[in-house]
Simulated assay, not measured.
Amino acid sequence: MAAAAIPGATGEVVSETPRRSRRAEKAEATRARLFAAAIEVVGEHGYAGTSVALITQRAKVAQGTFYNYFTSRQDLLDQLLPSISVKLLEHVRKKVLAAEDSPVAREYARITGFFEFLEQTPHLFKMLHEGAIQAPEGFRRHVSLQIENYKRALEYERRRGFLKVSGREEIDALTQMLMGARDYLSARFCVRDGEIVQPPSHVIETYMRFVVSGMFVEPEATAD
């Protein structure tokens, strides 16, 4: 459908499309500021200490403007983790695509990519550990996104003959084990003096030795 045309101040015909586009861009920028502000406030004060007033103050928008984009404080809080989750998946995907073509290299890319993203997005740690209680819908969607993506990755390795497990139920259990390892390792090794840091190298090395011996078929066993 063609853009609507209206008379300009001097009688010429001008399009409404640029004006609408500017309004849409401004609205998206405001929404993004509210999102970024909410992530910072949750990271500093926790979910329970996060209010609409604190979010809008940090985003430098009027408090009433908040409700043009979100129905409630909880609506925004439940959208935070899924939005970060998508960025995490993209970060890990790029690492995997850059890795050499081997199951070990891809798993190394997945685990190191996760820890890299955690360090680069320090507020994510608090959001993950409080989210199950304070933002259950958002936490559920985050977990679902991560699990389904990991299961697809493991199914890819299975189809190529690299996994020691074969059934769908086994892959589901393996996915939960690997996701659990991320959670516990980050809680134990990635918090130092209140800062989120990379785990020591021996943590990754131990993880990879466990994965390679327990999860993947020996390379010569996959040869034609």
Rank of each mutant, 00 (worst) to 15 (best):
F125L: 03
F125N: 00
V42N: 01
K164E: 09
H202I: 10
P18T: 07
D78C: 08
E220L: 14
Q57K: 15
L163A: 03
V191G: 00
G43L: 05
V197I: 06
R58T: 12
S51Y: 06
E100A: 10
I204N: 05
N68Y: 15
L80Y: 01
F35L: 14
G49F: 13
R168C: 07
A27R: 13
T17C: 05
K95R: 13
P136F: 00
I171K: 03
K60Y: 09
R158S: 10
R140I: 02
T30R: 13
L97M: 10
S102A: 09
S83P: 04
R23T: 14
A37P: 01
E119S: 12
G11L: 06
E148M: 11
E100N: 09
P103Y: 05
F189I: 07
D224I: 09
I55P: 00
F70T: 06
A2S: 12
S51P: 02
A32V: 08
Q79I: 06
M1W: 05
R152A: 12
R33K: 15
R188V: 15
E119H: 12
L185V: 12
P200M: 01
Y184A: 13
E157G: 01
A59Q: 04
I6L: 14
H202Y: 15
G131T: 00
V203G: 00
S72P: 03
H45E: 11
A221W: 09
V14R: 14
H142G: 03
E16P: 04
T206Q: 08
L88T: 07
R106L: 05
